[in-house]
């Protein structure tokens, strides 16, 4: 299934990747802060391997980038193409949600 704006093709890391993008939409964060934010916002507790699997994939695709830092806890931020990918994905989810609610209302 094609997903909006470049998030598709991430395999099992698709959903964690969206959550990482969503977290970084608020501003730059380092790995542990991303995991904590995702837990608070969505109730999903990503494991460390899954978190960094998603971060490394997004980094390789240029959807996020590391912010230069002296600290070993390197923060990441959303790139313009990452923001566009997230926007496209959220629009797709919105269409699905709207359609789902409309159909459920008629059920």
């Amino acid at each position: 299934m094609k997903q909006g704006g470049g998030i598709g093709g991430l395999g099992r890391f698709g959903e964690p990747a969206v959550l990482v993008l969503l977290s970084l939409a608020e501003g730059p964060k380092h790995g542990y802060a991303i995991a904590t934010d995702i837990d608070v916002v969505s109730g999903v507790r990503l494991g460390p391997g899954t978190l960094y699997g998603a971060i490394s994939r997004l980094d390789e695709r240029g959807l996020i980038e590391a912010v230069p830092s002296e600290d070993r806890r390197r923060p990441y931020r959303l790139t313009p193409s990452g923001a566009e990918a997230l926007r496209g994905h959220l629009a797709m989810l919105e269409r699905v949600t709207t359609t789902g609610q409309r159909r459920l209302a008629g059920a």
Partner: peptide, 18 residues
């Protein structure tokens, strides 16, 4: 990613699932 990943692992609650 090793340096930052190590810091994340230190902060993580260890367990079989993690």
């Amino acid at each position: 990613y090793g340096g930052e990943f190590e810091l994340v692992l230190r902060a993580w609650t260890p367990g079989p699932r993690a």
